[in-house]
Write a protein that binds this DNA or RNA. Structure first.
Lengths: 366, 366
DNA sequence: CGACATCGTCTAAACGTTTCGACGACCGGT
DNA sequence: ACCGGTCGTCGAAACGTTTAGACGATGTCG
């Protein structure tokens, strides 16, 4: 296998000239460059990676830490991994894959052996030990998702408030005059998870701005409670067996509490669901079971699902977390940390709306 | 960040002594080793990866090329990737992830820049350009799956014949006296795909050995034809609208052709399905639709599914391609190629049976 | 016509390992 | 007492780059 010395010899120059010619870091004479190019082609020269790492200041490798939690939706997860690899390649970076069991040990190893220039952290959870580790390692890193303590870290995530606002806008624009948000289980909000709260706040705030009454309900994970919560919302009052509506916040246009009577004319016709896949499915079942059809009777939007809503029956409009968008940005930020210093921050990616036909004008009678 | 010189200085020895102490490649005095260990701990020394690659003969990195074809079942795919990474780590190897769009270019790049010591090729198809590339690169490599031309390559795959035989044994042991195999579409066999054919052959051969009549039918992908094929098999004769049974091969215990009359007492009660996920689902629907229950009326085994059969209704016994088994072996073979030379070969992994309760004794009356 | 920047190239010093060969110390066998 | 062998250690040469510094040659501007 040819090395840079061979190229230099064939081209009749010194190795540094070859190096400069290839990197372009110093001007090289026209004829010389041509001779070098020719030699490179003739010898099929490709710089040795180890030599490059050692001599240069970069390894051109990023570590990607991607836990495979059992609650992960595999296709989405794969899409993220793929997106990171693709984005990294666009910057001439390769990606070293670290898995769950190696999470902290692996990060320590690859960073203190200087095998990687930086770290991309996928699927960040609220209390993610990798966040603290990355901070303490002081290695360039970009997290996709925001940990509980994001101080000193570079994070990328969807703009949840904007996503919620977008959902509200779509529904209001379609003519809906009463909205509901079915959220995560109570525990999620109490744990202080970032996004569910930001989504909720964005939802209520934009509804208030648009002058439309909106109700927010937390939804537990088991089917009866899901059905009860939906019932409570649709009936405009505590209706579920579990009294799920005690978890509800009703707000009028001015932000005040609004209590609809059962069967009230103000029952929401625009529903946003910000929950997990299973919850969506049960809700769809229950809606069908009640003889309501989407979007004729009810318009439904899936808020920031990490799964595929197009295979639901019916398919749901959604505002998904788009892998490519956040991964591209995360890689960019990682690369930028290597030269100019990027100050720590949480960077929000603009939401995009995926139309699958589950939103329409409300039935005139309602 | 401490380097080997620092360790040597603190321990009061030369760097080569440190290196030998850490690698164990030469005997080192007791006290000296202790001093070195102490210095390593004190300085939190970890060898620089680039230095190691350059000085040594290994990079301690494998490339993993994993296409993400759209017909891939994501959870299985992820399981393979995970299994490779885990297996590699057990040999102190890291894994560099190459994706589809980089398939050949990436392989060329990482191997000729000597960034990796070897290549693990996942999800190998019959005509896989990566197979030829790997052969021509002459880099240590292990393929999981067998390409059309496996000459000169090291491959690992499930033992499909043994898997089929295992399925037959289970059914015959349970008391079934007439079996059927529902296979892939005709085109798959005509294309010369290795495993479907080997599975079929193993199935028919073992059935003959056990003295049980068996019928094999190719099944196209669209629902009506799937139903027709199943109908043809269950009715023991051409029964499907499409005449699907013309694709059938009926064999008696001696290997001769056996033509059951419609509704014959010899209609198969033990069914093996070696096809894709969608086909399985339609078959299960059709079985339910005919008022047959599993395993009371019919015993069904999924042959080498790459997807999860435990979520089917009912769950199906299966003989899956187990990621960990093949990946562990592939990594082992890759590692072995680095020192002792491993001669090219196709290595078959023994099948394992996953019981989900879809096989039982046939109804006495049948 | 000097002063001075710029261009093009080279020499040489890193970068951090591994590993070969050498060498003294010590041991057992003759 | 001598020889061969193993043990423990060291010095030095790789491995293949990048890059700072030096140095003529060439061009520009006063």
């Amino acid at each position: 296998m040819a090395n840079i010395h061979d190229v230099a010899r064939v081209a009749g120059v010194s190795i540094s000239t070859v190096s400069y010619a290839l990197s372009g870091k110093r001007p090289i004479g026209e004829k010389t460059r041509l001779r070098i190019d020719e030699a490179v082609r003739e010898l099929d020269y490709m710089p040795n990676a180890a030599g490059r790492m050692l001599g240069g200041t970069r390894t051109r490798i990023f570590a990607l830490t991607a836990p495979l939690r059992n609650d992960t939706y595999a296709p989405a997860h794969m899409a993220f991994v793929l997106a990171v690899v693709t984005a990294a390649r666009a910057h001439d970076y390769d990606v070293l894959l670290l898995t769950e069991d190696e999470a902290t040990g692996g990060l320590r190893r690859v960073s203190s052996s200087r095998l990687v220039d930086g770290i991309i952290v996928l699927d960040v959870s609220v209390n993610d030990e990798r966040a603290d580790l990355v901070r303490s390692l002081g290695v360039p890193a970009a997290l996709i998702g925001v940990p509980g303590n994001a101080e000193g870290l570079v994070c990328v995530d969807l703009d949840f408030e904007a996503a919620a606002a977008l959902a509200v806008d779509r529904l209001v624009d379609a003519g809906h005059t009463s909205l509901a948000l079915l959220g995560h289980p109570r525990a999620v909000y109490e744990r202080g998870s970032n996004f569910p709260m930001r989504f909720r706040d964005g939802f209520l705030a934009r509804a208030a701005e648009r002058g439309v009454p909106a109700v927010f309900t937390m939804v537990e994970k088991d089917s009866p409670q899901i059905r009860a919560a939906l019932g409570g919302v649709l009936d405009g009052a505590p209706g579920g067996a579990e009294g799920a509506a005690t978890d509800s916040v009703h707000r009028g246009a001015t932000g005040g509490v609004h209590n609809g009577a059962p069967g009230s004319a103000h029952a929401p016709t625009g529903i946003v669901v910000h929950a997990e896949e299973g919850v969506h499915k049960v809700i769809l079942e229950e809606i069908a079971h009640r003889g309501l059809s989407i979007p004729a009777d009810l318009s439904v939007i899936a808020g920031v699902p990490t799964f595929d809503t197009s295979s639901f029956t019916p398919a749901l409009d959604s505002i998904p977390l788009i892998p490519v968008d956040s991964c591209v940005r995360a890689v960019e930020l990682a690369v930028q940390q290597l030269d100019g210093t990027v100050e720590p921050r949480v960077e929000l990616v603009a939401p995009k709306y995926r139309d699958h036909g589950s939103v329409a004008a409300p039935r005139p009678g309602s």
